[in-house]
Design a protein around this nucleic acid. Structure first.
Lengths: 326, 326
DNA sequence: CTGAAAGCGCTTACAG
DNA sequence: CTGAAAGCGCTTACAG
């Protein structure tokens, strides 16, 4: 049925060794022989079995990727960055999500032992950081795409959360705003602390509400602050969902954005273009983070040591109607 | 270094054959022997090499998935449905995107020949339908997640585009609307023709604008129709992006949604909750389509024949502020 | 119930 | 420059 290296060897009148050499090294083979072998390979449409190659070489030329969810709004960007890079290098990309509890984590660990992939890319491990650190210590190349400031004990790609928070504050300050309401995600995320620190460095405020990274948090934070009659002329939301909730609450309260209150988000999700008004936001370079992490991992698999300190990619302020340029 | 079946056999005082039997069949082995082997497996934390198992069995227990893009708004839902199902079955999921032109398609075909996966899930092949049909004819199990009405010559999962269009019309009609503007995607997609046919069956109209599945299309269609002074009291947008553009154009023209014009979209993207007002839309069950396709493929790999006619999952009208219940 | 041996399809020292 | 042979880590008739 399937064409094997033995078929090619027989048809070309050489040994399997020679076919393998033509396939892999290219060197050390008489050019006429090599040409003949290549002709046969083309004619029989021979492609080496990836399983057999992997077994013989002890490496699968496959990268694993572990994510807690595939439906998060920015996950597609990360995945695309990873997939483009990994494919261009001729590697396969094996996807895992571990969404069925501890059993599913165990199954994933099994895949590591089974050598299903040569290296691992991880997004947001939440409760898996220890396990991953352990795998890394045991020799599995691992790179984390870190949008939450975990600062793990293994290589990672992060973004400038602190500078991003500062850029939001700079922009609002330059537009003449002086009384910000800040609505954050959970304070136990490193990114939240950094975004906040960067922001209040430039624009100090006593008005900070902690919540989740959800629209409901944004809506309720604004509603309560208005109800408490605490004055603010701008909102710095720690992500775009919070910002969307804030926009809604402000509109329902009869306030105009940006005339009465300017709003700045974080992430630059696709929906940021579609809010009313469109959202000024601090863009996280998710696709670039994905491709940078993949490049680091592939370099590591290629033999280069992976740097231990995080690679930090810059955020960028995207100015739209909710907080226009001054 | 790595623990192999030989280590387990030696440690347990049995042959590799017996270890393999304990691992796979479980039957035909003395229970005391089996217990001893299992104890050793646990103690050594032995996990069979997936590459070696695949080579010996001639199957990789891996499913391939081919998508044109990972950043489309509904792709995460499809992927999640697929990943959950595939993982629960103990299969691996290998992701391909083919975004680097014909060379990248060739590389993908190579992966098929390399037996990197046992079966293939496909979303939106665009220019790849012929190639895929060919692979299917040559024996590769393939299932298409078809949101565009391709109706391929191999198994697929689709949704009720026609009934979805009709449900939008029913809803608008029941709310007292009678003059619809329909803004469609490209007419060469089967889904566009079906959504339109279902809609005009219930609510005939001469006002149909063809465009792309983009926000710009929605905005321009509404602007031009208003400029031409053609009257309409509702918009049926063929996806949520078009609907978002329509909402914006209506607002900028000083029209109130839904009082002046009601708007219904298609898809139920995450952003549909965040438009102003929130969007009434025909939900496509993307996650369910992903998991159904995966189930079909896995059943096929398990030996059950895969039905040739498409499995059709129902759409659902989600009512929100842009076209409230009558 | 158990094991020796062949085989899956490659790569890679080693020898010539 | 080329090939025979061993080996990668499993499974699976086959024989007992």
């Amino acid at each position: 049925m399937r064409v094997t290296i033995a078929d090619v060897a027989r048809e070309a009148g050489v040994s399997k060794t020679t076919v393998s050499r033509v396939l892999n090294t290219g060197a050390e083979v008489d050019s006429a022989t090599a040409a003949r072998v290549r002709e046969v390979i083309g004619r029989l449409a021979y492609v080496p079995s990836s399983g057999a190659v992997g077994l013989a070489r002890g490496a699968s030329r496959t990268v694993g990727m572990l994510t807690p969810s595939l439906t998060w709004p920015w996950m597609g960007e990360v995945l695309q960055g990873v997939a483009d890079t990994v494919e261009a290098a001729g590697y396969g990309l094996l996807l895992y999500t571990c969404r069925r509890g501890p059993g599913s984590v165990r199954h994933f660990i099994g895949q590591v032992s089974a050598r299903a992939f040569d290296g691992l890319l991880v997004v947001e491990p939440e409760n898996t950081l220890d396990t991953l650190t352990d795998l890394y210590r045991r020799g599995l190349p691992v790179v984390l795409v870190d949008d939450r400031g975990h600062r793990p004990a293994f290589p990672s790609v992060a973004t400038t959360n602190r500078a991003g928070g500062a850029s939001a504050a700079d922009h609002l300050l330059a537009s003449g705003r002086s009384r910000p309401l800040v609505v954050t995600g959970r304070r136990d995320f490193g990114c939240v602390r950094e975004r906040l620190a960067g922001f209040v460095d430039v624009l100090p405020t006593g008005l900070v509400v902690e919540g989740e990274f959800t629209e409901a948090t944004g809506r309720e934070a604004v509603e309560r602050t208005l109800a408490a009659r605490r004055l603010f002329d701008c909102v710095f939301a720690h992500n775009d969902l919070i910002a969307a909730g804030a926009l809604r609450a402000l509109r329902e309260a009869g306030l105009h954005v940006p005339d009465d209150v300017a709003v700045v988000g974080f992430d630059d999700l696709p929906m940021a273009r579609h809010t009313e008004p469109p959202l000024t936001t601090v863009r996280q370079p998710m696709r670039e983070m994905g491709s940078a992490a993949a490049r680091m991992l592939l370099a590591g698999l290629g033999g280069d040591p992976i740097p231990d300190e995080p690679l930090v990619l810059p955020t960028e302020l995207i100015v739209r109607g909710s907080a226009p340029a001054p």
